[in-house]
Design a protein around this nucleic acid. Structure first.
Lengths: 184, 184
DNA sequence: AGGTACATGTAAGTAGTTACATGATTAC
DNA sequence: GTAATCATGTAACTACTTACATGTACCT
């Protein structure tokens, strides 16, 4: 059972919204999907090449000598629908923060407090950006994607809020510094 | 900047709690850290071999002919402390569910409702198991790991609760079936 | 003219999974 | 005796990242 790349979904998905260069695909993914997806150039260009070879994507030259816009073809759109309908290939979880905290006894309360505090800051920062994204989506009510994009933003908001609450819980749960600062 | 494996942390961490066989390391990781970490045999045994070669782990033969208990050495414990203190190597996010929902317009509300419903079920199931884990930790109040393990359980509880809330939000946000069942 | 952003790609390497092979021990 | 579980490993493969190489377009 070979696991297959979901990169194709992200690339075809980006091109389904609007034709763009590979460079712009990368920018679109990091800016728009950045909170729950990521791709590097080393993945995007080979993927575009393969998609072009099988006709799921077409290269429309721009006026300029460098760069070309990629646009999705009918078969590419069909392929995207198929891929979206396939079962989700769940990655094994790998949460480095929780792994460290699980062995936090060896690390000591002070270092753990630092780790949790950093996570709290990141979560608060994330939470504050979602409001802006939400407003942006609501500004274009005719976009048929809007309800779905609101669903993903909501996921980000809920997750960030939960992280903030957890971080406060966690700081309260830490043992007092003196008690276990230095034990083997 | 080569990224280095955090597998070593998980393996040394497991052995720091108690000496055990490689097989048991795998079991301990999937059972205890399963919600936020995972390792396969293909990673564990080579890692144990490398750790043994540099003396961070020692093979204590059991009475039986097959299998041997691995135990962490002093240098292994020092190594673990170092690794735990290193900056967390964050994996790029890859959430297949949100990726699909972001392009949910192409998938249609019915399929999306199914995806969200499945996620809701999984989150509710996860939430119900955390209570048992919490009780287990609280049953052994002398364990110095207890506060840290409670912190990780709390993370799981908060995340699961947030998922449940999000799923309900999301189902409410989905456009009515007729509106976008079949377009473009 | 020089710097920054745009644009496309490749090469090398890591981390990880799955599947396979093999055997010992335990429980029934 | 046989099936399930315990136990240790290896081989093949995939996905992915980073770093490099190369060049164009635009702005000042």
């Amino acid at each position: 059972m070979t696991r297959h790349s979901q990169t194709e979904i992200a690339v075809l998905g980006a091109l389904s919204v609007e034709p763009m260069t590979g460079y712009a695909v990368r920018a679109a993914i990091t800016e728009t999907l950045g909170d729950f997806w990521s791709e590097s150039f080393g993945q995007i260009y080979p993927t575009l090449g393969r998609l072009e070879a099988v006709g799921h994507v077409r290269r429309a030259t721009t006026g300029k000598t460098s760069g070309s816009k990629f646009e999705i073809t009918e078969s590419g759109l069909a392929r995207l629908r198929d891929l979206l309908a396939e079962p989700i290939d769940v990655l094994p979880p790998r949460n480095g923060l929780l792994l460290r905290l699980f062995f936090g006894h060896l690390l000591g309360p002070a270092v753990c407090a630092q780790l949790i505090g950093d996570a709290l800051d990141r979560a608060e920062a994330a939470a504050s950006t979602y409001a802006a994204v939400r407003a942006e989506i609501l500004a274009d009510p005719h976009n048929p994607h809007a309800p779905y994009w609101l669903i993903t933003v909501t996921a980000g908001e809920r997750a960030a809020a939960a992280q903030v609450e957890w971080a406060r819980d966690a700081l309260a749960l830490l043992p007092p510094e003196a008690a276990s600062a230095r034990e083997r």
